[in-house]
Simulated assay, not measured.
Amino acid sequence: MSQDKQVALVTGGNRGIGNELVKQLAMKGFKVILASRVLEKGQEAAQKLKELDLDVICVEMDVANQESISQAAISVNEQYGRLDVLINNAGVYLEENKKLVAMDPSILEKTMATNFFGVYHVIRSFIPLMEKRGYGRIINVSSEYGAMSDMSYPGVGAYKLSKFALNGMTRLIAAEIKGDIKINAVDPGWVSSDMGGPSAPRTPKQAAESILWLATIGPEGPSGGFFKDGNQIPW
């Protein structure tokens, strides 16, 4: 691998928006690491992209398992010694139509384990690779459901809280990091995928485009922001 080729990693990269993000990053000239909870599914997705002559490899990573994240970070460090772009896309939506205090608490715990703690552990495991070079772009795929104003309306409580916490963490890490390392949260909109369902108005391609501009922003670009379609939206 040529030393000047930038390396990007996308969690949940085997399908939906994640798979489209992998494809578009590779088309922009990145070496892309497709992280997938199930190795076989990840390898299958990576193979399809390799057949299009794109520079994609697969790594097994379950964001709800700290050991799995650590192993992936060690492997990326050993193989490439760098990470320029990290997109935290893996997420779950396990909602049953119940009030927060009436739902099975395991729904909230599992949702937080993936959507919040999963992202936290991925960032803390991979950010040393960025700090080593003083450069990095981290994008957290969030949701408008995570906005403070949305907490005033009932429903989808576990998902809302997980994205609310994710947004808070995005701002906090932005305030703490040094060097040309930027972290932002993005709402991709309602996307037709396994999570969004078939009636959603947006394609994964449109969603990926609305996220990817943050992967290549210059040193003057935003950090600690929340965006939809390239525009800042309220927290």
Rank of each mutant, 00 (worst) to 15 (best):
V76L: 06
Y145W: 14
E78G: 06
Y159Q: 05
N167S: 09
V141P: 07
T11E: 14
G189T: 07
K182S: 08
G157S: 12
I138S: 00
G16Y: 06
S75Q: 14
A73Y: 08
Q232F: 12
S199Y: 13
F30S: 01
Y135R: 07
G42T: 02
L166P: 04
G146H: 05
D62M: 11
T11P: 04
Q71D: 06
K160W: 00
S106R: 06
M1C: 00
A215V: 07
G134R: 10
E96H: 15
M148A: 09
V92W: 03
I181G: 06
I181C: 13
V59K: 12
V76M: 06
D55Y: 14
E209Y: 00
Q3C: 02
D150G: 13
A26P: 02
K132T: 11
F126W: 08
G29V: 01
G230R: 12
N140V: 13
L94R: 05
N14A: 04
Q47F: 02
W190C: 00
M169R: 05
S143N: 00
V141I: 15
A73T: 03
I69Y: 03
K205H: 14
V141K: 07
E67G: 10
Q66P: 01
W213H: 05
V56W: 07
L83T: 05
N88V: 13
D84N: 14
N231F: 11
G189F: 01
S36N: 14
E20H: 11
P154Y: 08
K48A: 06
L212N: 00
K99R: 15
T203G: 04
G91K: 11
G12Y: 14
C58M: 08
Q6F: 00
S142D: 04
Y145K: 13
V56E: 02
E220L: 00
I87M: 04
A208R: 04
L166G: 08
Y80G: 11
N115I: 11
P234M: 10
Q24K: 03
V191D: 05
P188C: 09
V38Q: 10
Q66H: 09
G136I: 13
V101P: 00
L108N: 07
V156F: 07
L86Q: 08
I181E: 11
Q43R: 01
A165K: 09
F30Y: 15
W190T: 06
A215T: 06
L39Q: 04
I87K: 03
F116R: 09
E51Q: 03
G81E: 02
L25I: 02
S223V: 12
A215R: 08
N140Q: 11
T11I: 04
Y93V: 03
V59W: 11
A26E: 04
K5E: 05
V7F: 14
D104G: 14
M169V: 02
G225F: 01
A185S: 13
L100Q: 04
